[in-house]
Simulated scan of single mutants.
Amino acid sequence: MVTYIEHGNIFDLFEISNYAHGCNCAGAMGKGIALQFKDKFPKMYLEYKRRCKEGLFYLGDVFIYNYNNGTVFNLGTQTSWKTKADIVAIESALIKMMSYANQNGILKIALPKIGAGLGGLNWNDVKCVIDKVAQKFPGIDLFVVENYKNISI
């Protein structure tokens, strides 16, 4: 099931410790939600950057990073920070993420509006892909924050 949340912060959602976000395959996390992931998970960022440099992270791929409390899914959605996101890569990465989550008992994943912010795609097109993939995995709940808003107190 997909729950769309109009405003919020994925890191503030109650009882969710698994996160996903769209990444470029060039090793840059300098803007938007990617910068928040870089700051929150510095070891993950170093491994992501190494994989990109060595050509081990590509469009449609998922770099899975397990940390103390959960999992981060880095979805390969853009070739570089200069290019638009790729809708086919988004679908491929989401399928891989959901398959992994299904096999590993991950029931809740929070993610931002992937591919349609800095990625430049039409959000309605991306939502259709998210909905289509999620239907194949009814036991996993996705919580998609459509617009960032820091609501922490």
Rank of each mutant, 00 (worst) to 15 (best):
K53M: 11
K53E: 13
K53W: 02
E54H: 13
E54D: 12
E54Y: 12
E54K: 11
G55E: 07
L56N: 05
L56C: 06
Y58Q: 09
L59N: 10
L59E: 10
L59D: 07
G60E: 09
G60D: 07
G60W: 09
D61Y: 06
D61W: 08
D61H: 07
F63N: 03
F63V: 02
F63R: 10
F63E: 00
F63L: 07
I64N: 02
I64H: 12
I64T: 03
I64R: 02
Y65G: 00
N66M: 09
N66H: 11
Y67T: 02
N68W: 14
N68E: 15
N68S: 08
N69E: 02
N69R: 12
N69T: 11
G70K: 08
V72C: 05
V72L: 14
V72R: 04
F73Y: 08
N74T: 08
N74S: 08
N74Y: 05
L75D: 00
G76K: 02
G76A: 04
T77P: 11
T77G: 10
Q78P: 13
S80L: 04
S80T: 11
K82A: 08
K82S: 13
T83D: 10
T83H: 06
T83Y: 14
K84G: 01
K84E: 13
A85D: 06
D86I: 05
I87D: 08
V88M: 06
V88N: 02
V88I: 08
A89R: 01
A89V: 05
A89I: 00
A89Y: 13
I90E: 00
I90N: 04
I90V: 10
E91D: 13
S92W: 12
S92N: 14
A93M: 00
L94E: 08
L94S: 01
L94K: 10
I95Y: 15
I95N: 12
K96A: 02
M97N: 10
M97W: 01
M98Y: 10
M98F: 11
Y100Q: 08
A101T: 07
N102F: 06
N102T: 13
N102Y: 14
N102P: 08
Q103N: 07
Q103V: 11
Q103W: 04
N104I: 13
G105F: 12
I106W: 05
I106V: 03
I106P: 09
L107T: 13
L107D: 00
L107F: 05
K108G: 12
I109S: 00
I109C: 01
I109Y: 05
A110E: 06
A110G: 01
L111F: 05
L111H: 08
P112M: 03
P112I: 04
P112T: 03
P112V: 06
K113G: 00
K113E: 06
I114Y: 06
I114R: 05
G115I: 07
G115P: 05
A116T: 10
